[in-house]
Amino acid sequence: MRLIVVIIIVFINNITFAQNNTDVSLFFKKDSTNYLNEVSSKEGDLFNVLGHHGSAIENEWLGFRIYFNKVAAIDVYSKTKEGLEIRKAQWYPSVEQQKNGWGADYYKVGNTVGLGGIRLWDGEKVVPLNPITKRTARVVKEGTISYMEMLSEGIPYKNTNVDILVRVTVFTGIRKAKVEAFALTSEPVQFVTGINHHPGHKINSESNYISTWGLHPEDVAVDKIEIGSAILFNPNDFVQKISEESQYLLVSKPTKLLESWIVSANAKEKKLNTFEKFLAYIEEESKL
């Protein structure tokens, strides 16, 4: 009997492991049915020729993309129901699809870091991941995860040139996404990350997370709905928090690796559909 139970448990675990409720998307607009694993540019700007302006990934609750240009921000695709949509919607679902319960691009990034985007700090100011000698985007789906990477090479930084790799990973069964920034250099760098916000947003800035809730001035979606977003981090990794008109920035200690977690929700969801519910969720996640 014990052997039978063990076999059943192993079988169930194998089924669970085989389920990957994540996906990736990377393609050129001129050939939107040909999905790619990697694209590169010596100019570092494929914003206008790539579908959804860069690489994209998703899990059941959220989609994320990294803009393939000097902004290199992380943007959010919000969903109203659980499921995978990016490959069918290609980030911009039709009016009919949105009215039938699909998600949409409700989040507005502008020139900010977006949600958890990466830049550098030279001791006095923010340094964008630009100019570069080459920029490469890559997407991978494996096991129960998907991730996208952007490698920006040859960035002028403190009298030298540095290569920075940014990776965003989504997980099956976990709403949050992990953001990692790697300095592929001999010397450590200071990273900058953060979260953007808009007028009227409710903002909570705590020692280990920053969260926002409110409307984004986005104009590509059928409706305007309130969006919650948050970045969770280890306060020991940072030396400075900068409050700007449209974003909160976090300046890291000198390092070669920086990690944070990002998450979002919206008012059309079944569970985390209010500021209070979203904040309670963030409070619990920040204790982990």
Rank of each mutant, 00 (worst) to 15 (best):
A104H: 05
F278E: 03
Y35C: 05
S94A: 06
V166R: 12
I66A: 14
V239M: 07
D45A: 13
G44E: 10
V39E: 02
K125M: 02
G63E: 14
R135P: 00
H52L: 09
D237T: 00
G63W: 14
V192A: 03
K241V: 10
I231V: 15
G194W: 00
N234D: 12
K29E: 14
I132Q: 09
R87K: 15
S260T: 10
V5F: 12
I12E: 07
K88Q: 15
I118S: 01
I57S: 12
P217R: 06
D75P: 15
G44W: 09
G51E: 05
V189M: 04
A177C: 08
D31T: 12
L62Q: 15
M150L: 11
G154E: 13
A221T: 11
V192C: 05
S55Q: 14
Y92G: 05
G101W: 01
N14R: 10
N69A: 15
V139A: 06
N59Q: 12
K178N: 09
L115D: 04
L272P: 03
G228L: 08
G44Y: 07
Q240E: 15
F278W: 13
G173E: 06
R135M: 08
Q240A: 11
S32Y: 04
L279I: 06
A267R: 11
E284I: 03
T16P: 00
